[in-house]
């Protein structure tokens, strides 16, 4: 299990390759990459704030639950903080398991929980000013699936 919280950019393709490499005990590797989206065409920057210490603990707890529940062979979570430009990767998860259903489900579970239970806050900066992104009720509701 690998959890990284960093301000530096990362190469999602390279991370996935190294995660998937040299494994003979898995039949499925699933990954998800979250990207800074410029919804209205005016986003200059996305600022991501986090709670150092709690962030790493919260993600590790979520990842451990996924490993237990879906008998994952391995899991990778990378999440960035600081200023990000549109199109840059914000975060990625990868899961490795014997069969694909477990790898897909566990990745979906990780994403739902990282959205609402990992202490990150997004702020969008445009020419008009900066505003905090509100959490969506739908994101909180998504946790009930699990």
């Amino acid at each position: 299990m690998t959890v990284r919280v960093q301000s530096d950019p990362f190469d999602a393709g390279a991370e996935l390759n190294s995660f998937a490499q040299n494994r003979t005990d898995v039949g499925a590797v699933v990954s998800f990459t979250g990207v800074v989206r410029d919804t209205k065409g005016d986003l200059q920057e996305m600022l991501i704030e986090h709670y150092p210490g709690m962030t790493e603990r919260a993600i590790a707890k979520i990842a451990e639950e996924a490993v237990q529940r879906w008998a994952l062979v391995d899991v990778l979570v990378i999440h960035r903080y600081g200023p990000l430009k549109p199109g840059e990767p914000i975060m990625m998860v990868a899961t490795a398991s014997a069969h694909r259903a477990a790898a897909f489900e566990a990745a979906d579970f990780l994403m739902d929980y990282l959205k609402s239970r990992a202490p990150f806050w997004k702020k969008e900066v445009t020419a008009q000013g900066a505003s905090w992104v509100d959490a969506k009720d739908a994101d909180e509701d998504a946790l009930k699936r699990w």
């Binding site: 709670y51 210490g53 603990r57 999440h79 994403m111 959205k115 609402s116 202490p119 509100d134 959490a135």
Partner: peptide, 28 residues
């Protein structure tokens, strides 16, 4: 959050070293 674990507003503070207040999280 109390000592970096999410908590309720009626949680006791006895023995707690760090209290954090923040809006609902927007990770991912």
């Amino acid at each position: 959050a109390l000592d970096q674990e999410l908590a309720d507003f009626d949680a006791p503070l006895a023995g707690v070293q760090e209290v954090a207040f923040f809006p609902p999280m927007t990770g991912g």
